[in-house]
Design a protein around this nucleic acid. Structure first.
Lengths: 120, 120
DNA sequence: GTCGAAGTACGATGGATCTCGTACACCGGC
DNA sequence: GCCGGTGTACGAGATCCATCGTACTTCGAC
């Protein structure tokens, strides 16, 4: 259920794959890019919607838009317009139903690797 | 230790990444191709070395070589020449050490999806 | 030594992808 | 109504990638 303090979504529509249209290959491809893996981890940590603009990514605005679209079209994230912002959230329920345990394994794997590379 | 009935490896050498050179992004990219995901699942089921030639893939011989190379260079599989054959095996220990739980999550996810798509 | 099986190397080709800049659209606040 | 912030659309460039066919190498068997 949506909180009342949250601005409503606008009429602008965004295409999302249905749950049963999500493919493992597409999810893996989406997460195989370093920028998108970073976004993925941030969204998992946030546990709430995040606007595109809060991310500090080493790419331009238009490239950022591109990466969020790939994540959305692969079924990894849900996007919705709220006012001028575009909010992003992991599709946790859908992914857990389709690929049980995968999300956690990916997140811990990414965390392990980040630790490992930081302490080289 | 190597069994005595197994033909020895020949002098032909194959480049493999060290364990600490394996990157999650590269592994995910390697497994994001349908052909390579099929190979991955077959090797996991086999629990032993398999030669390239036992796979019935919907691509040509040279494309098959390409896919096995991607899997090897990403660190997913280990390859070794034995006689005229080239044997393939999952790098289970390395992957489990780097990405605990990921292998199983990927395999069960792929199996779930295969079941789901078969019973449509 | 010759042959066949297994796999490679190489180049080509068509398509996807990552990146960017510029110009534009949408929305809230003033 | 206008401005600024947020994000898009579009085109372009460079690179990567999956695929193939052909010619070649390597090795075991005979």
């Amino acid at each position: 259920m949506q909180t009342q303090t949250r601005p409503p979504s606008t009429g602008r529509s965004l295409e999302h794959p249905e749950r049963d249209e999500i493919r493992l290959e597409s999810v893996l491809h989406a997460l195989s890019d370093p920028v998108r893996l970073t976004i993925f981890r941030s969204l998992a940590r946030a546990e709430d919607e995040l606007s595109c603009s809060v991310f500090e990514l080493p790419v331009s605005k238009s490239t950022t838009t591109h990466h969020f679209r790939v994540l959305r079209e692969s079924g990894v994230i849900h996007q919705i317009y709220r006012g001028t912002a575009k909010m992003n959230a992991l599709r946790r329920d859908d992914l857990e139903a389709l690929f049980p345990g995968l999300l956690d394994a990916l997140l811990t794997s990414a965390a392990h690797q980040a630790d490992r590379l930081a302490n080289d």
